[in-house]
Design a protein around this nucleic acid. Sequence first.
DNA 1: GAGCAGGTTTCCT
DNA 2: AGGAAACCTGCT
Length: 303
Amino acid sequence: MSVLPHAAVTDSWTAWQSGVPPVRASAAALAEILSGGQAFRWRRVAGTEHVWQGTWADCHARLRAGADESLEWSAPAPLAGRVAASLGDYLAADMDFVALTDALPWRTDAVLRERLAAWPGLRLLRQPLGETLLAFLCSSAKQIPHIAQLCERLAQRFGEPVWEGVRALPEWPRLAEIPEKDLRACGLGYRARFIHQVAQKLAAASGWAERLPRAPYPEAHAWLTALPGVGPKIADCVLLFGAGQFEAFPVDTWILRAMAERYGLRGWRPAQVAQFGRAHFGPLAGLAQQFLFSGERQAGKKR
DNA sequence: GAGCAGGTTTCCT
DNA sequence: AGGAAACCTGCT
């Protein structure tokens, strides 16, 4: 069945099952959710069209869009318990994204309306905060495949074993022990120094991971941007993809271009565009951003 | 081989 | 304030 080297040889995978609560997503939406720049540890299973395999925290699982577009998962049998307990949180399954999307101002915004229609089922993940911060510290001036490669090296060299050949991303207390030069050896370049410095700062800041998701957005954003290597864009990505702060409106080059061309914001600076985004799209601005982002990337591919 | 990439910091005017 | 250069690495 599987063509992955380690799968199905010794350990068996559980049967496919629905999440609790269930999550609806088409194969296309699932692909965009898992590989569209929110997360960096998911791969298509070789030989399949729509099966994804990935890792978060100490969990490892497969995901697919099953019949009637409801999401199904499978995990290595020994991991099934923790995956079952954690998957709903990871997928933010408790959130009704259809209702949230409907609350966006698409009735008065034709551009948004078109993008929402183009990506039915798109949703935001709620990833473990610490590894979201780590992944996005790797992300500056890098494209998705390279970010994924950096995450993989960090996991393989410094992470705890999760399953055959799979390791978790290292947690921040572990990262604090690693000399900068060892991080550089992963190919991180100047990002190695930032990760090292952030690890030292976080070691002295207890409870940050619990506080950040509950803090008011401006406060959370300010706290993150005070970390070395974390500017406004990375702070917004961390808050949006790892803390459920939907007001966060990450402005990267794709969004900058989308907003310039589709909303007439030519020549605007990223900070101005971010402020416009939050004012125009409201408290769920980050969700709107995700639809605009996916649309712009797709348009970019076709060019 | 020069140029550039989903960004941030630093150093200028 | 606002703009340009530097920072690493890997790919075109």
